[in-house]
Design a protein around this nucleic acid. Structure first.
Lengths: 206, 206
DNA sequence: TAAAAATGCGAGCTTTTACTCATGTTCGCT
DNA sequence: AGCGAACATGAGTAAAAGCTCGCATTTTTA
């Protein structure tokens, strides 16, 4: 059985503040100094608390990082969901643009934190949540594809959704790391939209 | 200054065997048990050598992992280069198929090792080599695009190459991890080829 | 207001692990 | 054979980091 996320649920408001401070401190250290510097003692110090307090709420370091993952993941899922919802009825290219821009925003918000958490997730038991979000986005896209049979004709909506999601995600991620200047122009996003639209909007195929 | 890759160059054949055994053991542990279990003592033990021998050739653990990265990276680069070279003159879709199949082979060969090394590269100073390979593949693809102005008309060959490389890589990687059964059929590869050809082979665009 | 419960504290224990070094062994060369 | 250089050994060291535990402080409850 996996170690639980939280050891003791905070009841008083000061306890909630402590938990909050610890998570914030952890995020801060992770973005500024990377995982190497993320020691439990240091997290507590930066949070203005003590190791003891930390271990009162998180059974171990792994759980702490996992909590961080989950919180971040939550935000990603919500943002993508919102983008899909607000563009759902619009033309295909606009939907693509909305969602891709949402992804860019996510990556631009806290690139280093996002990257580190992505890197840490497997080692920390956070893969389940991560895959859950991925699958949800894929399912959303698959549903969208199936809702436009006139414009999008594909043999396998699920596979197409898988491909589009992974492709876009990787391009945005790669751009954040290697070509940050591209994200400030529209050309890059437009190019991704173009790719997606061209892939989905094919007329004849096996 | 970075710590060197190797401390003492092995001169005798038994020394080369030792180095070989150490690298093999490290790869073995990494694939079977992950990075957590990769302790220098354990590597030496599995290699049938002693820690002392290990440190005779690798100044530290980081250098060992880096050596592993580099060796693996080398193989990837060679394979992609070969695929490009042998298909260079053929139709676009065949080139795409050849290269994509090459990527699938790479990922299928030692998926766990590949994945772990990818994960470890940043923390081990192996990013330079990794990016170098990526850039080489991108440059190769960009040159290919520019060599087919009749069939492929794009505003920015380098950006297109970036997008295609990242997109395909991510899809293959994702498939290895999440949908291994797809890789045994041709349909998945064909779908990727379709995406790439459709993206590159556009007729009219801004 | 006094007991009880919740929270906070941090010195230090324990374990792990990268790495050294003094010593022994094998190889190559004359 | 004999000598020096390369190679191998592995018990031991030192530092780091996760985590505990007894006690102090604050908040809630009766």
């Amino acid at each position: 059985m996996k170690t639980p996320q939280i050891r003791k649920t905070p009841r008083q408001s000061r306890a909630k503040e402590t938990v909050e401070a610890i998570l914030t401190a952890a995020a801060h250290i992770l973005t500024r100094e990377g995982f190497e510097a993320l020691t439990t003692n240091r997290v507590a110090a930066v949070a203005g608390a003590s190791v003891g307090s930390l271990y009162q709420y998180f059974p171990n370091k792994e759980a702490l990082v996992r909590a961080l993952c989950e919180r971040h993941t939550q935000g990603v899922r919500d943002r993508i969901r919102a983008r899909f919802a607000e563009a759902w009825e619009r033309p295909v290219d606009e939907v693509a643009r909305a969602v891709i821009q949402g992804m860019v925003e996510i990556r631009r918000h806290q690139p280093k934190l996002h990257q580190e958490l992505l890197r840490l997730a497997p080692a920390v038991g956070g893969l389940k949540e991560l895959h859950a979000v991925e699958h949800e986005v894929e399912a959303l896209l698959a549903r969208f594809i199936e809702s436009r049979p006139e414009e999008i004709a594909l043999p396998d909506a699920a596979q197409a959704a898988f491909i589009v999601c992974h492709a876009v995600q990787a391009c945005v991620h790669g751009a954040v790391l290697e070509k940050p200047e591209w994200l400030k122009q529209d050309r890059f996003v437009e190019e991704l939209v173009e790719m997606v639209v061209r892939y989905l909007g094919r007329s004849s195929s096996s």
